[in-house]
């Protein structure tokens, strides 16, 4: 019977078959996976470094949430990291952020500077392409 032949048992063959499927070429080193949180941190760091912009307190029904600055709720602070989120779709990044800007700086100026910095840094540090940086200014700090 053929099953008595030890060399043809599937148990012996399987590691080889799997290895040849995972490694298409001998110098394949693996994948680099960049977390969305890392990209979001890079973006928020760029805002943090701008003296004219920073974190914004969350709003509820149009006014700043009571208790902002306590219990882990962000307060509006130009020297703090804002809330950011990033979404990675293959090699394209979409960034969303809610920031505060110093009153009365030109909002177009500040946001354009931030957008440029964020796009350059994400491109340089992760190699991902930034498709869109959505900035919503939710507080103005005097």
């Amino acid at each position: 019977m053929r099953t008595t032949q030890p060399t043809t048992t599937p148990r012996m063959e399987s590691p080889l078959a799997e290895a040849s499927r995972v490694l298409p070429e001998p110098d394949y080193l693996g994948d680099v996976v960049i977390s969305e949180r890392v990209v979001a941190k890079i973006a928020s760091q760029a805002v943090y470094e701008t003296p004219r912009a920073g974190a914004a307190a969350p709003r509820m029904f149009g006014s700043v949430m009571p208790g902002a600055g306590h219990m882990g709720i962000r307060a509006s602070d130009l020297a703090a990291r804002p809330k950011t989120s990033a979404q990675i779709d293959s090699s394209v990044v979409y960034v969303d952020m809610a920031i505060s800007v110093r009153w009365p700086e030109s909002l177009a100026d500040v946001t354009e500077r931030i957008r440029d910095t964020v796009e350059d840094r994400i491109k340089a540090w992760t190699g991902l392409t930034v498709a869109r940086v959505r900035i919503s200014v939710t507080d103005l700090v005097a």
Binding site: S100, L107, V133
Partner: peptide, 17 residues
């Protein structure tokens, strides 16, 4: 701010400031 929905400022933020 820039004519699109990419950059916006909340009306409540402007009102408060």
């Amino acid at each position: 701010i820039d004519g699109s929905a990419r950059t916006t400022v909340g009306a409540t933020a402007l009102r408060d400031a």
